[in-house]
């Protein structure tokens, strides 16, 4: 990394400009300050050179998940990517997420994710909760710290959808109508692991959710800005639960079925199209 980059200085950005019908990378030169992030540079270009440049952002603190884009070909939060961490001798490319249709410039239509989310039955308490142990007299749920620790990792998700963007099933194979994607595998895992939840979601995870399409290449884990171990702690455990239910000859012989006593979720519609 050169001293020039550490100290700011002139940089060249190539920003994708266009919409659903197509677009191109447009060159912009700007003078940068030390410590600037990609979002700072993009906003400076918008202020001084291209007022019609569309970019979605909000918190600038890597907590809202709005400014997801592809910087030098990798999904990143623009507000968390420092210019001095990128090669100084090459232009910086900034493109919209490829897994979703571009609306304009760096803004993509991620509404498919919200439609998928609606397919998932929210937390629904079991009917036979033990009074004083699992529910108190005020109707509040009681849960042990040991049981919340595992699920709290998944609650760090800021829904930047970069895991969805990098997943080759959605990105390259465009199978949005067959696979929910890592973000929603993780949501379903957190519900399935919940000790007080009363819904058996395994069929949905395997069938409509399409977990069998995941070939665990771990790209979702690599790009997660919150460092969530999506593959190891959500997808693989769910794959193992599907094995319990459908593939383990020993468990079949012993008559052990997972999620015994949980009720089936209400019927779902087909996985939404993109």
């Amino acid at each position: 990394m050169s001293e020039t980059a550490m100290a700011g200085g002139p940089r060249r950005l190539q920003i994708w400009r266009g919409d659903l019908t197509g677009g191109e990378l447009v060159d912009y030169e700007l003078e940068t300050e030390p410590g600037m992030v990609v979002l700072d540079a993009v906003l400076e270009i918008q202020r001084s050179q291209a007022p019609d440049l569309a970019v979605r952002w909000n918190c600038k603190a890597a907590k809202c998940g709005s400014c997801s884009a592809e910087v030098n070909g990798r999904p990143r939060l623009m507000c968390k990517t420092r210019l001095d961490h990128l090669p100084a001798d090459q232009p910086i490319t900034v493109e919209p997420m490829r897994a979703f249709p571009p609306i304009r410039d760096l803004v993509t239509d991620v509404s498919w994710n919200y439609r998928v989310n609606k397919q998932i039955t929210p937390f629904t308490a079991r009917e036979n909760l033990k009074p004083g142990v699992e529910i108190n007299e005020k109707g509040e749920f009681l849960i042990d710290q040991a049981d919340t620790d595992r699920m709290s990792e998944f609650r760090k998700c800021i829904e930047c959808f970069m895991c969805q963007d990098v997943c080759h099933i959605l990105r390259d194979h465009r199978m949005h109508n067959r696979y929910y994607g890592p973000r929603f595998m993780m949501r379903m895992a957190s519900l399935d692991m919940h000790p007080l939840d009363g819904v058996d979601r395994l069929d949905q995870i395997a069938d409509e959710g399409g977990i069998g399409l995941c070939n665990i290449t771990k790209c979702c884990t690599e790009v997660c800005p919150e460092g969530i171990h999506i593959t190891d702690n959500a997808i693989i455990p769910m794959k193992e639960r599907i094995v319990d239910q459908r593939h383990d000859p020993l468990l079949k012989l012993l008559g052990r079925t997972p999620n015994k006593g949980r009720r089936k979720p209400p019927p779902r519609t087909e996985t939404p199209e993109l």
Binding site: G23, Q90, T93, E95
Partner: peptide, 15 residues
């Protein structure tokens, strides 16, 4: 460029 795949094998903007 078109921001939506399909793309040829190995296509990437990674450096």
């Amino acid at each position: 460029t078109v921001a939506t795949p399909p793309r040829r094998f190995g296509a990437t903007m990674r450096r």
